[in-house]
Design a binder for these strands. Sequence first.
DNA 1: TCCTATGTTGGACAGGTGTCCAGTCAGGTG
DNA 2: CACCTGACTGGACACCTGTCCAACATAGGA
Lengths: 185, 185
Amino acid sequence: MPRRELNERQAATVQRLLEAGLAQLAEVGPEALTVRQVAERAGVSPATAYTYFSSKNHLLAELFHRALVEQSPPASDDASATVRVRALTRALTDLCERNPHVAAGANFALLGSDPDVQRLRLRIGGEFVARFDAALGESSTPELVDVLVLAFSGALLQAGMGLITYAELGDRLDTVVATILGADR
Amino acid sequence: MPRRELNERQAATVQRLLEAGLAQLAEVGPEALTVRQVAERAGVSPATAYTYFSSKNHLLAELFHRALVEQSPPASDDASATVRVRALTRALTDLCERNPHVAAGANFALLGSDPDVQRLRLRIGGEFVARFDAALGESSTPELVDVLVLAFSGALLQAGMGLITYAELGDRLDTVVATILGADR
DNA sequence: TCCTATGTTGGACAGGTGTCCAGTCAGGTG
DNA sequence: CACCTGACTGGACACCTGTCCAACATAGGA
């Protein structure tokens, strides 16, 4: 499986698959999306799609991962940690709000046991930790980062399950951040 | 679909299905589990299984829900809210630790869009909220309950994804609870 | 005793997943 | 120019899910 070191032609194929995945996701949502549809949309055979993405979950997870890393974290230099962390959660929830299907797709895709999904899961988790740590700045402690990341994942989960909308998520997390950091600093 | 008001015979069938589900879950895990295997194990036809459980996810979610409500929350009357909340998280993580397959099953089952799953999701979410609220006692505020439930779901999620073990979960949540309640009360 | 409601069955169905592999096709190399 | 390597194809495969429905069995009422 040539998942490393893609040549130009392969990279183009992957690109087309990702774009087709995005389009298909927006049209039919993550559950109804099928790998074969995406392949057809990308003008590629299903076998080829499975050459680059080991599973539907892998494809969905990759779409989320791309969206995440393409959005660089806000470089807020406000004096208050609360403000900086809120800027971060806002940026992340806005991302989900703008791409609700991608977020929803990631939601169940990331639970898969496929090794490729596992890899992405770790990357995404690490990215969250790094961003919260950076936002906390000198206020950062392992405990605070941990709580923030856990609460944030929990919030994403609830949004993914449809208990709250991604729009409400932003406001709700403002309160959460205040509650966690409020008395503490 | 007679999902309400089961007569004795039906209740017995459901019971056998749930027990078979539990056994199968312990043997092969949530992903490899198939409805037809469970039906066979229960000595029942697949069609019958689908009469009572609208999907594999529904079955898994029901197993978790039963485990949850069968375990009554600890009636700790310690003076400190932190201690009481910790007693609660301990009880919950112990439950998951004793039934890791059930917890893992619930983990992806509860993300499903099946209406029956949705119903259970709300019930389970409500149960968490009620228990945290009770554990907080007079210290309870909507914000605190919210943060605790979010962090707790996030933690369950991470455990379900295999980032941490259910055993570590207990210790980790002790720290989380302290961080959230620590300065605040 | 017969009859009828109702729980259960078996098997077919459409559609999905992920795998496999012999075969095609184009571009760079000798 | 002929060749070969490597990306891509297409179609079959095993197995899953969830649905449907005519047929069957087995209670309890007439």
